[in-house]
Structure formats: structure tokens, C-alpha cells
């Protein structure tokens, strides 16, 4: 590849669109994952899933 020729704008726009869309998707998914992990850790730290002692007796 030496030059992209007369249609360089179309080629670069295509690769730009791919980078933009996939970059946005990766960021969105990673941020969502991190947010859910934080929320779950905070709830577990507060003991949200634990039953009261009298409820857990057989």
C-alpha cells in the first residue's frame, strides 16, 4: 500500500466508523461490567443477601 488513491476519504471513513462504533461498544460494556461489580460488592458488604439469624434456623 503506497497511497489510498482517489477514494481515500471513503476508505478512511469506513475504518473510522468501525473504530468509533466498536470503541464505544467496548467502553460501554466494560463500564457496565465495572458498575455492576461495584454495586454487587457494596450490597454483599452490607450483608444484603444474608437472612436474619432467626430465619435461618431449621
Amino acid at each position: 500500500m503506497t497511497s489510498l488513491g482517489p477514494h481515500a476519504g471513503f476508505i478512511l471513513a469506513s475504518y473510522g466508523a468501525v473504530a468509533l462504533i466498536l470503541g464505544g461498544l467496548v467502553l460501554t460494556i466494560l463500564r457496565d461490567h465495572a458498575a455492576q461489580k461495584r454495586a454487587l460488592a457494596a450490597l454483599e458488604e452490607r450483608g444484603a443477601g444474608r437472612r436474619p439469624i432467626k430465619d435461618s434456623a431449621p
Partner: peptide, 18 residues
């Protein structure tokens, strides 16, 4: 990664209700 996030979201929902 998205599936892991969704599983955690459902766990968060359940724990919030509890």
C-alpha cells in the same frame, strides 16, 4: 463480559429486593 455484567445486574436486583 456483557453476560457477566447481566448476571451481576440480576444478582444486584435480587439483593436490593431482599
Amino acid at each position: 463480559v456483557a453476560m457477566r455484567a447481566e448476571i451481576m445486574r440480576r444478582r444486584v436486583r435480587t439483593l436490593t429486593i431482599l
